[in-house]
Design a protein around this nucleic acid. Structure first.
Length: 115
DNA sequence: CATCTGACGACCG
DNA sequence: GCGGTCGCCAGAT
């Protein structure tokens, strides 16, 4: 799969921290954006030690369906991340990936971006 | 070849 | 805060 950089980044997520599909897609410049990120996660090979459960939706919400949702929630709480109503405090646990190329990064931030 | 769907995100009312 | 719509890519039907 050509999602190696995705897995690599996910593996680098420190314990107690999470990342969103959008952030992941942007950090890696994935064509298609968040969708591709989600696709990559879906293709994530299990048993590779990839903390896929640390990847959530844009609002820190668990988008996947059962039974993975329950599993993810369980794993997150296991790492010290409190999950409330299938969501977590992005504000406190959102992790910023390293090497985030800021080429032509404008401050035209969207209003929905977590501050 | 046309359409729908999917581990998504952002905007609009 | 919530629901609906559009955009984006790839694979499935």
């Amino acid at each position: 799969m050509s999602f190696d950089p995705v897995y690599k980044l996910v593996k680098q997520i420190p314990r107690g921290r999470v990342l969103t599909y959008g952030a992941l897609a942007r950090a890696l410049r994935l064509p298609g954006g968040a969708r591709t990120a989600g696709r990559a996660m879906g293709a994530t090979p299990s048993g590779k030690g990839i903390p896929w459960h640390r990847v959530l939706g844009a609002n820190g919400k668990i988008l996947i369906r059962e039974p993975y949702a329950s599993l993810q929630k369980k794993l997150l709480e296991s790492e010290g991340i409190p999950v409330v109503e299938s969501r977590i405090s992005l504000r406190k646990h959102l992790w910023t990936p390293p090497g985030k190329k800021s080429s032509s990064a404008k401050k035209t931030r969207r209003s929905s971006a977590p501050r």
